[in-house]
């Protein structure tokens, strides 16, 4: 089996596992599965409870429930939130765009600046400026994103009054949204840069000791030329997948940043559903986030095989 196919198979298996897990969790956890499926906010009478139970198929044998569950997933039916009185899929759809608005620019900035700065830091290890850089990003790396957001919010919005304190927009104009988004994106970018920085730095530290780097020096390449002509691409290679795998972690960081900045995205959706024990929303969000992470991994693999000739030819 070719590696690409193997990879695809693993992604599919992971997806399968997650959906199954989502099926099993509410049915195996302590408490009534009905409550676990509807959320603790749904107050039901005895009669309507049993009616719902049969409507949702909870009285059917497990394997039939399982098949039914798959059917509903495939038709993008993630259940109904009794707390928010809306179907979970439409809730997620409406919230997701705000999260993407935060995550996409920050993740791109993180990937670009993180790898370049990290590459330079690994290349010039021990030199003054790079030491300062490394120390700075190490501090950010060690700080939970929500605390970083709190600090930024306190400093820039509370003390200096440069940015609004909360929310996504007040008037809805482009500039207004940008003004609201600036600080969260900055924090999120810093967070994502710090992770990619550390990974890339380590990778370059390994690559610069390789024989081809020494040979490039013997050919007469000088200083950063060796990094950018030779080591950068090679160092990037192993970490494309690492960055993709880290995507899940960084994405969870976005959720926390949203909570602190009171943005109306996925993070707050999950947080609110947690507080009100709105299980369908919680599970639906988890499913969607996981699918996104797995897709990002697949994309990274495609990218990987585009850069590495060795994979292309296998």
């Amino acid at each position: 089996m070719s590696p690409a196919k193997k990879r695809l198979l693993r992604c599919i298996l992971a997806l399968f596992l997650i959906v199954s897990l989502n099926f099993i969790i509410p049915r195996s956890m302590p408490g009534d599965p009905l409550t676990n499926l509807l959320g603790e906010d749904a107050y039901l009478t005895e009669g309507s409870a049993s009616e719902l139970r049969s409507l949702m198929g909870l009285d059917l044998p497990l394997h039939e429930q399982y098949l039914a569950y798959w059917r509903s997933i495939l038709s993008f039916d993630l259940g109904y939130s009794y707390h928010l009185h809306s179907s979970v899929s439409s809730l997620i759809l409406s919230r997701m765009k705000w999260t993407l608005l935060l995550a996409v620019p920050s993740l791109s900035a993180g990937a670009i600046f993180g790898t370049i700065l990290g590459g330079l830091a690994g290349w010039k290890r021990g030199c003054g400026m790079e030491r300062v850089n490394t120390a700075f990003f190490l501090m950010i790396y060690c700080t939970p994103p929500y605390f970083l957001s709190l600090l930024a919010l306190y400093l820039f919005s509370f003390r200096l009054g440069l940015f609004p304190l909360k929310g996504l927009y007040s008037t809805g104009s482009f500039l207004d949204i940008a003004h609201h988004l600036m600080l969260p994106i900055l924090v999120m970018s810093l967070f994502s840069v710090s992770r990619n920085f550390m990974i890339m730095r380590g990778s370059v530290l390994v690559e610069r000791r390789s024989l081809y780097a020494a040979y490039a020096r013997a050919k007469g390449l000088y200083g950063n030329e060796i990094l950018f002509r030779h080591c950068f691409k090679n160092a990037l290679l192993p970490i494309i997948t690492i960055i993709a795998l880290d995507f899940g972690f960084i994405f969870s960081g976005a959720l926390f940043i949203e909570i602190v900045f009171s943005m109306n995205g996925m993070g707050n959706l999950i947080y609110d559903s947690l507080l009100s024990r709105d299980y369908p929303v919680l599970q639906g969000s988890f499913l969607i986030v996981t699918i996104m992470v797995i897709l990002a991994n697949l994309l990274a693999d495609l990218q990987y095989s585009r850069i590495d000739p060795r994979v292309r030819w296998q």
Binding site: S210, L211, Y212, A214, Y215, A216, R217, A218, K219, G220, L221, Y222, G223, H230, K233, N234, L237, I307, D308, P309, R310
Partner: peptide, 25 residues
């Protein structure tokens, strides 16, 4: 900087492990 101008142009080197000394990409 000065020695890097000599390397490869005035004095060049053949490494002992040609397969690893070339950049794989």
């Amino acid at each position: 900087k000065d020695i890097s101008r000599i390397r490869g142009s005035q004095i060049s080197m053949v490494f002992q492990n040609p397969t690893l000394a070339h950049n794989p990409l």
